[in-house]
């Protein structure tokens, strides 16, 4: 997971998963996202970087309509997933969120057992016909969350009793269990220590095989380590979007360069 592995960054062939065109977001009178257009590829890790308050988390939350839960928030423009407008009135946000999973900044396991945490999504979406199938789904999800070996003997222990890094991997497993197509991660490592961060990053790299992963991060090293494409946000504008290697080695916009070299942010 070290440097800029250019070979793995050959993403041109990948299909576009998410297309955003002219997205504007308002919190009351505050114009939080200004005319953002971006195309996010399938089976790729896309990183959103930028200083605090630049709108990267807000934009991420638009992708699964989590902003609907904030009453003063208003979204304009088009966001398409697989060429389907997710803000179309016919789209059920609840169904959409099953397809677009999300992992949050702070690990937020439910106050239930580890098993029930992972089984929560499959249960409410009726993904398992019986207990054996559910067991299978849970085991698969925990294995993909790279936490199975640590918890397989205590699936009935409360999820809140795990360490911070384990909790975050449990949350990733929980998100994976509903078989989403896109996985959104909002600073998933900001509450974790370096070792747990490394584990989660390794996991993100593996998840790329099956999902389109979008990750918001404050750490530019992390963006450089895990992503193939990077978008730089500043004051609600998408300043620059391109290959991660390009952005970090040869940015076009002076603001991007200033941020990456530590002069703004």
């Amino acid at each position: 997971m070290n440097d800029m592995r250019q070979i793995e960054r050959a993403v041109d062939m990948k299909q576009t998963k998410i297309t955003a065109r002219g997205v504007q977001v308002y919190y009351g009178d505050n114009h939080a996202i200004k005319d953002v257009s971006v195309e996010i590829a399938d089976k790729t890790v896309t990183a959103f970087i930028g200083p605090s308050g630049c709108g990267k988390s807000t934009f991420l939350r638009c992708l699964n309509r989590m902003n609907d839960t904030i009453s003063i928030c208003r979204v304009e423009g088009d966001i398409l997933i697989d060429n389907e407008d997710i803000y179309d009135p016919r789209v059920d946000p609840v169904q959409l969120r099953a397809k677009v999973g999300m992992v949050f900044q702070k690990p937020n396991p439910f106050p239930k057992s580890i098993y029930d945490n992972v089984a929560y999504g499959p249960k409410i979406h009726g993904l398992a016909r019986n207990k054996a199938e559910l067991d299978e789904i849970v085991e698969k999800a925990l294995r993909r969350g790279a936490i199975w070996d640590e918890v397989k003997d205590r699936l009935n222990a409360p999820g809140t009793g795990l360490s911070g890094g384990q909790q975050q991997r449990l949350c990733i497993a929980r998100a994976v269990a509903t078989e989403p197509e896109v996985l959104l991660m909002d600073e998933p490592c900001s509450a974790l220590d370096p070792i747990a961060t490394a584990q989660v990053e390794e996991l993100i790299d593996e998840l790329r095989q099956s999902y389109s992963v979008v990750i918001v991060t404050h750490s530019m090293q992390q963006a450089a380590r895990v992503s193939q494409k990077t978008a730089f946000f500043h004051l609600g504008n998408l300043v620059e979007y391109g290959e991660t290697g390009e952005i970090f080695t040869n940015p076009e916009d002076p603001r991007t360069e200033s941020y990456i070299t530590g002069r703004i942010g």
Binding site: M66, L96, R97, K99, G101, M102, F110, R174, A175
Partner: peptide, 24 residues
């Protein structure tokens, strides 16, 4: 964050209340 976690998994509001908020 507990509610967000549940909503983010595609649960409805009442499912979230019944299965996550009330037990907590």
């Amino acid at each position: 964050t507990m509610r967000d976690g549940s909503l983010g998994l595609g649960a409805t509001k009442s499912e979230t209340v019944r299965q996550v908020v009330l037990p907590a």
